[in-house]
């Protein structure tokens, strides 16, 4: 393989917004262009964090860029997201974040107090998550060449002992755990933009999920097969990726999936599916059937884990897809999200 020319399958003429939205278009870009040229030797499916070995020590490493409008929203801000997002990517790869380096891209003319507020938010989030900020870089671009500020964080983490997760290890009968109510972040951002003129008492769920991850690793370490934080594209997109990577079917019970009233109301009003809405403080775990109850128990006892539930299980069929079943015996496939969720009127 190493001697043959990399096979580039990405043939789209230009980059569109959807390529960054975390759905199928993003996947085509990563798998069709980045993977063959940059990590041709990589084994297995691409995940949010890489595990690499240096002098016999295995560490986890991840990077993420944060572009959000508005910069501040109920329950959080870009600074908190930038820390929690990276801590969470490491956590769901089975690692405790140890250090983060930060890159700021700032638009000339950005008021200092806005920047200062975000830097403070980052400091507080890092302290809360117990991670050190080890360095950084700043670039300033001309006014109009960026939307106020972008933050990139790169984190390294130490692997928790006794966890080995991979989609290939997922087996029929395994249970799907979800740490709490879904859609809070995505709906908060959608409403905070103000374009829809809709108000609701709702806050982003941004937080470090590491304490929750640690609690289930302690309770059911060997039984944990896979974890993911369902950010862009929501639970449906994360589970579709899993279904494709493991070749199994994911079957969810709709009535088990916790959704707050305000998220539900906004979704009904705007024609959206909560399963497609972004989260910033939740995670999904696939746990072997024999350890699932212990894992759930541990999650529920951990601070912030009271709403955790088992929402479904892995089955042989429908292979490669996510099926949602209802109490009254109806079922539907739920696909990945194509691009950003857009309000519908029809």
């Amino acid at each position: 393989m190493a001697t043959t020319a990399p096979k580039i399958k990405f043939r789209e003429p230009q980059i569109e917004m959807a390529h960054g939205a975390g759905g199928k278009a993003s996947r085509r870009l990563v798998e069709g262009l980045f993977a063959p040229l940059l990590f041709a030797g990589a084994q297995g499916p691409l995940s949010d964090a890489a595990h690499i070995q240096i002098n016999g020590t295995r560490i986890a490493m991840t990077t993420d860029s944060f572009v959000v409008s508005p910069l501040r929203f109920p329950g959080g801000s870009i600074g908190e997201l930038a820390i929690n997002g990276t801590v969470n990517d490491l956590a769901v790869s089975g690692a405790r974040a140890e250090a983060i380096v930060v890159t700021f891209v700032l638009e000339a003319g950005l008021p200092t107090d806005i920047l200062e507020a975000e830097v403070r938010a980052m400091g507080q989030a890092a302290e809360a998550a117990g991670v050190r900020i080890a360095g950084g870089d700043t670039k300033v671009v001309e006014h109009g060449k960026a939307d106020r500020m972008y933050i990139t964080t790169t984190g390294v983490g130490r692997l928790l002992p006794g966890v080995a997760i991979s989609p290939e290890s997922v087996q029929p009968g395994d249970k799907i755990l979800l740490s709490g109510a879904i859609g809070d972040h995505g709906i908060t951002i959608l409403l905070a933009r103000g374009e829809l003129d809709i108000e609701a008492e709702i806050r982003s769920d941004t937080r470090s999920v590491f304490p929750l991850v640690q609690s289930i690793v302690r309770a059911a370490g060997g039984g944990i097969r896979w974890m993911r934080d369902p950010t862009r594209g929501g639970v449906a997109t994360s589970l579709n990726e899993l279904a494709r990577d493991c070749g199994r079917g994911i079957v969810l019970s709709e009535e088990k999936i916790p959704v707050r009233d305000a998220v539900r109301g906004a979704c009904e009003l705007l024609g959206l599916d909560p399963l497609h809405i972004a989260n910033e403080g939740q995670f999904l775990a696939v746990v072997s059937a024999d350890q699932a109850d212990a894992a759930l128990e541990a999650l529920r006892r951990a601070p912030g884990g009271a709403e955790a539930v088992i929402i479904g299980e892995v089955r042989d069929e429908p292979a490669g897809s996510v099926l949602v079943t209802t109490l009254y015996g109806g079922s539907r496939l739920v696909d990945m999200l194509v691009g950003d969720p857009l309000p519908r009127i029809c």
Binding site: R244, P318, A319, G320, S321, S331, L333, V334, D335
Partner: peptide
């Protein structure tokens, strides 16, 4: 039908 039905050609799409 594509988004919700079980009978779509999943493998072809993938």
């Amino acid at each position: 039908h594509y988004n919700y039905s079980q009978h779509r050609p999943i493998t072809i799409d993938a």
